[in-house]
Write a protein that binds this DNA or RNA. Structure first.
Lengths: 345, 345
DNA sequence: CGCGTGATTGCAATCGTTTGCAATTTTATT
DNA sequence: AATAAAATTGCAAACGATTGCAATCACGCG
C-alpha cells in the first residue's frame, strides 16, 4: 500500500497489469481469469463475459513473457540470414529480401511471429546454437547456406525444427528447401547454346554452393556440347559489382558470346554495362540470369532468366518447419526452376 | 527420479538446461551461476572460470524467457508493417523491404533483436495496442503510416518508445522519421518543368499521406508556374500496376509531357510501357521517380528520380527509438530528399 | 587472539501466467 | 428428497532466471 495518505487518484485505482489485478476486480481467482481469457477452457459463460468486459475496459493483455515461460513455447520462429563472404551482400539482396517478405506472410498466417536475425558467422562462431538455444524461438529458418554448410549440418542432427533455404546435396542431413540449381544451370546453358552461343562465361562467385551448383550444371551441358565455359568471379555487393563486371566484359570482349549470370541482379547490371558499350544483346552477346526478380521483366531488352518460385519456396519452408515442430522428420523439398524466355537469349 | 532402474545413460547424466542443473554440477548456488554468467557482478575469478567452463562444455544457455520475465525487458524491438489499402502491397515493395534490411543491421548492431509483424489493420482493429501491450517488445518501429495515421496518433500519447517511418504533419504527436515528401514533390515538378514539360501527371495513389504530400508539393510548383497537373491513381501491387499504367498512358497520350511517378517501382514499369509504345523518353515525355532504388540507375535510359536516403532513415529510426527507450521525448526527424539527375528528365 | 573489513556466496522472494487436482456448486436422475 | 454426475472454480505448484539482503569466509591489524 504505497502512499496511504493520498486519496483515490486515477493512479491508485491502478492500471490493470496482471491476471491478479483483474481477478481482484472480477472477484474470482487468477486461474479463472486465465482460463476465461484463453477462451478454450470450461468457464461459465457469464463469468467469462464479465471477465472479458473488464479486460477490454482496462485494455488488459496477459504478459507474453510469463505465458511463454510457463508454456515452454514462444510462438516465434527465428529467421537467420547468415552473411558469409560478402558481408553486406545478402540482406540487401533483392532475392533474399523478397523471400523474407513471403516468409513473413506465411508465418503470420499460421499464427507465428517472426524474429529476424542477421548474423556474421566470422564474428560469431556459434550463432546458430545461440539462436536455437536462446529459448526465444520455437524453430528456425535459415535463409541461405552461405559458407556455413558444415555448421548447419552439425546442428541438424540434434535439432529437429530447422529448415534451410539453399541447395540440396547428396546425403545431406539438414532439411532444405530450394531450387534445383544444377538443373537451372543446365537450362541456362542449353538455352544460350540453342540460341547460337559458342563460348560461355559464368558471371558470379562460385564459392557459395548454390552458385557452384548453377555453374556445375551449366558446365555439364557446355562440356557435353563441346562449348567452352569459364567462370568469372563477381561479387554481389552493389558498389563493387559494376566495376567488376565492366572489367570482365573488357576482358572477354569478342571471346565470349553467351553470359550466364549467377543472379538477375548481376545480369541487370551486366545488361546496363553492355548497353553503354554499345554491344547488341542478344545479337552480339546473349545474356541469361537467374531468379526472375520483378525487375527482370522490365529491363531493356527484357531479361531471359531462370525462375525460382519464391512464393512456393516460402510456403515450403513454413510447411516443413511446422511439420517438424510437430515432430515429423521431413524430407527436403527441391523446387523445379523454370526458364523464362524473354529477349536477351 | 524417473526410471531408477536404468544405469547412468547419457540421458540420465542429463542435459544441463537450467541454472540449477549447472549450479549442482559446479557445487554452487544458482545465484552465483547467474552472476558468473552475467559477467558483471562480483564473483571470484576462479569460480567464474569454473562455471564458464562447465557452461561451455555443456552448451548451456540461460533461458531467455525466464530472464526477460524477471528483468521486465525483452531486448526485442518490434517492427510493424501495416498493410493498408493494397493488402499485398508494401511487404513486397522494394522500398520497405530495403528499409527493413537496414533496420535489421542497425538494431543488431545495438544489441537488439527484431521482431517483424505484418498487420492488416482492416482485419484487426487494435493491432498496435496488441503489439505494444504484448509484453514481447521493448519498443516499436512502424514502417509506413499507411491509412493508420489516427490510430498511431492515439497510441503515441501513452506510449513513448515508438517511432514511425512516414510523413511529418504539422502538429503531429507521434515521432516520425521520413523524407520531406512535399519538398521531394517540388523538386520533381521543378525539374520536369525546367526540362521543358508543359503538362504534368502524377502517377500514384494520393490516399497514403506520403504520396499525398509528394503530389501536393508538385502541385504547388506546377500551380505557381502555371503548368497543368493531374493525379492518376495507380496501385502498387505488381500485378495490377502494369495494366493501370498502360491505361493511363493511353488516356494521356499527347496531353501530358511530364510524368512524376509516386515511386520508382511505378516509374520503372512506366518506362517499360513507354518503350513498348515507342515513346521517346525524355524527348516526347519526361519521367521522374521517387526513392532511388538500386534498379533505378540500371534502367534504359537511367531514371531521374528523387532520392530518399534509406540508410540514414534506418539509422534515424533506431537512434530516436533508443533515446525514447531511455526516456527522452524526441523530436521528429525530417530528411532532405535529393534530386538524382539522370536521363529521363 | 579477537575483531573489523571487504570479498564472495547463498537464500529466498519475485516476475506473471498456466494448469493438474481438489473443492465446491449446479443440475440431473431416480 | 437424496444422491450421482457434471460443471465451475479455487489452490498452489510450476516455468527458470535475477537480485536485495544476510551470512560466511579470508585476511590483516592492533
Amino acid at each position: 500500500m504505497p502512499d496511504p495518505d493520498t486519496p483515490d487518484t486515477p493512479e491508485s485505482t491502478g492500471r490493470v497489469r496482471t491476471l491478479a489485478d483483474l481477478a481482484k476486480i472480477a472477484g474470482v481467482s487468477t486461474g479463472t481469469v486465465s482460463r476465461a481469457l484463453a477462451g478454450n477452457s470450461l468457464v461459465n459463460t457469464k463469468t467469462r463475459a464479465k471477465i472479458e468486459a473488464i479486460a477490454r475496459e482496462h485494455g488488459f493483455r496477459p504478459n507474453q513473457m510469463a505465458s511463454k515461460l510457463r508454456r515452454q513455447k514462444t510462438g516465434v520462429i527465428g529467421v537467420a540470414i547468415p552473411l558469409g563472404h560478402d558481408v553486406r551482400q545478402q540482406i540487401s539482396d533483392t532475392f533474399f529480401i523478397t523471400l523474407l517478405g513471403y516468409l513473413a506472410d506465411e508465418l503470420t498466417e499460421k499464427g507465428y511471429d517472426l524474429m529476424l536475425r542477421r548474423v556474421i558467422p566470422d564474428q560469431d562462431e556459434d550463432w546458430l546454437d545461440r539462436f536455437i538455444g536462446s529459448g526465444m524461438v520455437d524453430g528456425v529458418i535459415v535463409i541461405g547456406q552461405s559458407d556455413q554448410y558444415e555448421r548447419i549440418e552439425d546442428v541438424a542432427d540434434g535439432y529437429l525444427p530447422m529448415v534451410v533455404w539453399g541447395n540440396h546435396q547428396e546425403g545431406q542431413r539438414h532439411c532444405v528447401v530450394g531450387t534445383d540449381n544444377r538443373l537451372g544451370g543446365k537450362l541456362a546453358a542449353e538455352r544460350l547454346i540453342a540460341s547460337g552461343a559458342k563460348a560461355l562465361a559464368f558471371l558470379g562467385d562460385t564459392q557459395p554452393i548454390e552458385f557452384a551448383a548453377r555453374y556445375a550444371g551449366a558446365k555439364e551441358v557446355a562440356d557435353k556440347m563441346g562449348v567452352a565455359i569459364r567462370a568469372l568471379p563477381t561479387h554481389l555487393s552493389p558498389e563493387k559489382t559494376g566495376e567488376e563486371i565492366a572489367e570482365h566484359l573488357q576482358e572477354i570482349e569478342g571471346k565470349v558470346d553467351g553470359i550466364f549470370a549467377a543472379t538477375d541482379t548481376i545480369a541487370v547490371t551486366c545488361l546496363k554495362e553492355l548497353r553503354e558499350r554499345g554491344v547488341d544483346v542478344p545479337g552480339q552477346l546473349k545474356v541469361i540470369g537467374f531468379d526472375d526478380l520483378p525487375i527482370s521483366s522490365q529491363t531493356a531488352p527484357p531479361l531471359t532468366t531462370v525462375r525460382q518460385d519464391i512464393a512456393a519456396g516460402a510456403k515450403g519452408l513454413v510447411d516443413l518447419l511446422l511439420r517438424r515442430l510437430a515432430g515429423e522428420d521431413t524430407e527436403s523439398l527441391v523446387l523445379p526452376p523454370r526458364l523464362m524466355l524473354r529477349e536477351t537469349a
